[in-house]
Structure formats: structure tokens, C-alpha cells
Nucleic acid binder design. Structure first.
Length: 284
DNA sequence: AGTTGTGTTGAAGA
DNA sequence: ATCTTCAACACAAC
């Protein structure tokens, strides 16, 4: 559920709230989320390190620390990073929401601040890497070009499409190794906006359709970032608050209801085991 | 009360 | 290679 706009919201908030804070300690009751290193070594590596910058690539969060280490956090389906200080611990009602109650890891920061990691389904992961190996790490993890990066241009998109002629466009948009950041919510919204059916083969797309999909991707993700993401159910920002893009959803989870454009019934089907929503009249 | 589905993704099997 | 299935886990909805 946290897709590119949700992760972007979190990362930009983290840069406002915890940049330059020092990690004083770390606690976890679910250390199997921490990959490739023991809890003790992890703790030792990050203790007394300063948080220099939060960075986003696709749905991935990177926290660059002093001393040349970087934390890689993936929220998967239900991960929430909650920033708390003395005041908000007392006054912020959002933190009492049930969805924010599944705290499994806590970074203790200077000045009594904490970064608390709530994760209901416990799918989220934390890796520790050397900052200088980031580029290599992204390649190893097969994290594709970020959908909102300057590098992702229409020319780049077209090039990526040429490499996968047999793929269905609805599946391609979800493949993080090709383009990173688009999840199940936004792929349906993007294809609806572009007027293209999800099951179209990439090689069947006209130049005009390719351009429409590219532009719809930028437009929808940009608006969703502006509205601080979609809280269809679980997603919350670093203050535990919901986003606003759910009000803008045209097709996602709106099956059996009238298409906002033509009033025909929105359909839902499974594409590679994942739900997809579309209008057969507005999408060709 | 048991079954099914859920926004993610990596690994295993075909 | 590439596609499908399953598994990680907890909970809501049926």
C-alpha cells in the first residue's frame, strides 16, 4: 500500500523532522525484519550516528547516516514510520489509532525524540549497507528507474517498452525491476487516466498511447504526492495521519459502481494474481 | 467458526 | 528466461 506518493510523503517529512538527529539507541521485538545482520551488530552500527538525509527510490526508503552507513527500509504492505517527540506523544491522537499500534522497532533519537516502526503484518524489512555501495545495491535488488525521477523520460519509457514487447502493460507497470514506485492502486488509476486496457500487450500500444500512459503516470503520481498519498485503508504518514488521494480514486476498488466518466460499470479482475480495476468503455 | 482476500515482494517450482 | 504458486503475517469481511 505505501507506493511512490506515500513513500515520498514519508521521506520528505523525515527530512523535516529527523535530519541531523543522532540515534542514541534502538529497540526491536521482531528482529527477523532486520536482514543480514544480528540485532546486536545492527544496534552497534547505528548507535551514535547522525541521520544525514532521507532518500526515496521507488517504494524504498534510504536513511544515510554519518560514518558511511545507510539504512534501507521497505514498508511492504502495512509499515508505518511514526515520528514522536515529547509533545506529540501526549497530544497526537493519531498515534492511538489501531493501525499505528503495531510498534516492532524504535529508533531512539536525541532530545527524547523517537522514530517508531509500526507494522501489522510484519512484512517490512530493514537492511544495513555501506553508503558508497548504494548504486550497486540498487542494481542487485533490481530496483528499476524511479517513476518520478528526472531520468524517467518519455524516451526512457519507450525504450523500456521495446525491451518487453510481449508483456501486458498492466503487469509491466507493477514490475519494480522495470519502473519502481507504482503499486496496485496507481496502476489502475494510471491506465484509466490513459484510456488503455490493462491487458493490452506492450507491442500493440501506439506511440500516442505510450505517451498517454507516460503522462498519466507523472500526472497521477504528482497529484497523489500533493495530496499526501492514498489511505484507502492502512497507510499513515509520520504523524500517523491519513492521506487524501482516496477521494480522487476513479476506478481502484470501485468495481460494481458507475464509471465517473461514462457511468458504465467498473470491472475488476485478476491479472497475475493481483486485482485490477478498469472501465471497458473508457479504456481501449 | 472456517474460509477468503489484502495494497508487497522474494523464493521455489514448472 | 519467464510464468505461476506459495510464503512471510495479521486481521477484516464474508
Amino acid at each position: 500500500m505505501p507506493e511512490l506518493p506515500e513513500v515520498e510523503t514519508i521521506v520528505s517529512d523525515l527530512n523535516k523532522k529527523i535530519k541531523n538527529a543522532t540515534i542514541t539507541n534502538f529497540w526491536s521485538d521482531f528482529s527477523s525484519a532486520i536482514k543480514g545482520v544480528t540485532l546486536a551488530k545492527f544496534k552497534q552500527a547505528i548507535k551514535n550516528k547522525k541521520i544525514l538525509l532521507a532518500q526515496r527510490v521507488g517504494k524504498n526508503i534510504f536513511l544515510h547516516l554519518s560514518g558511511g552507513k545507510t539504512l534501507h527500509i521497505h514498508l511492504r504492505m502495512t509499515g508505518h514510520l511514526l515520528f514522536k517527540n515529547n509533545l506529540s506523544k501526549k497530544n497526537n491522537k493519531n498515534f492511538q489509532d489501531k493501525v499505528n499500534q503495531y510498534i516492532h522497532h524504535i529508533w531512539y533519537l536525541s532530545e527524547n525524540k523517537t522514530l517508531e516502526f509500526s507494522d501489522l503484518r510484519k512484512f517490512a524489512t530493514i537492511h544495513l549497507l555501506e553508503t558508497i555501495t548504494l548504486k550497486k545495491y540498487l542494481a542487485e535488488k533490481k530496483i528499476g528507474v524511479d517513476a518520478m525521477s528526472a531520468e524517467f523520460t518519455l524516451a526512457k519509457f519507450t525504450k523500456l517498452l521495446i525491451e518487453k514487447p510481449q508483456m501486458l502493460i498492466g503487469i509491466l507497470l507493477l514490475d519494480q525491476s522495470i519502473i519502481s514506485g507504482i503499486g496496485n492502486i496507481y496502476r489502475s488509476e494510471i491506465l484509466f487516466s490513459a484510456g488503455v486496457l490493462p491487458e493490452r500487450k506492450v507491442l500493440s500500444l501506439t506511440k500516442v498511447e505510450q505517451k498517454k500512459i507516460f503522462q498519466a503516470t507523472r500526472k497521477i503520481l504528482q497529484l497523489a504526492i500533493k495530496l499526501r498519498g492514498t489511505s484507502d485503508s492502512d497507510y499513515r504518514d509520520t504523524s500517523g495521519a491519513s492521506g487524501n488521494f482516496q477521494k480522487m480514486l476513479q476506478v481502484y476498488r470501485r468495481d460494481k459502481t458507475a464509471c465517473p466518466n461514462c457511468q458504465k460499470i467498473i470491472l475488476r479482475k485478476k491479472l497475475a494474481q493481483r486485482s485490477i480495476f478498469y472501465c471497458v468503455n473508457c479504456q481501449k
